[in-house]
Design a binder for these strands. Sequence first.
DNA 1: GCGACGATGGGCT
DNA 2: GCCCATCGTCGCA
Length: 201
Amino acid sequence: MSIFKQLTEKMKKKQILTKDFFERDTKTVARELLGKVLYRRSGNQIYRGIISETEAYHGTEDLACHCSKGKTPRTEVMFGEPGHIYIYLIYGMYQMLNFVTMKEGFPAAVLIRGIKDAEVSSDGIHFTPLNAKTDGPGKLTRQLQIDKKLNKKALLPASGLWVADENINIPAHLTGTSARIGIDYAGEWKHKPWRFFIKET
DNA sequence: GCGACGATGGGCT
DNA sequence: GCCCATCGTCGCA
């Protein structure tokens, strides 16, 4: 079976996450993304990794969220449709990957901070193994060749980036929360436990 | 093992 | 002109 037929089957079985998954509270989406499978197709390569660390950025009141500055050319995608991709450049060299959440008009997104290598699945698709560390937001985008060309696109196989639910259940006792990283400027918002991660075992 | 720091460019004041 | 949702390297223990 061709990879395109397989992906169509996955869409039918709702294994590929679409708008309704992302059109919910940002913290809920961030927590439930743990264990979901991130796919990246670049040329004839397909990368696959289990999402292991996320952060929620929610609304204009959240001083850590870029959208607290209002609607600008950079942030307008966060005001748009859930399930779309928000990518921006930080420190002049790192691309950060986010998924837009909440219904259209409410600005929010989940930052993907880490993915883990997954075993090659038995369904016949050839996956390019992750051969470098992907345990940081800048490292994973560099490894998966994710850049601003994907900004504002939908999370779909046709875009080259999508997320699948492969029934990998991460029990609550294997997850943790903490304050978000690198936002000391955000006043009281820096303390919100809006970072979610799978604990190392 | 760990803290300090420089690289590097777009967005916003 | 200043501020970053980071990372690799360096110096010192």
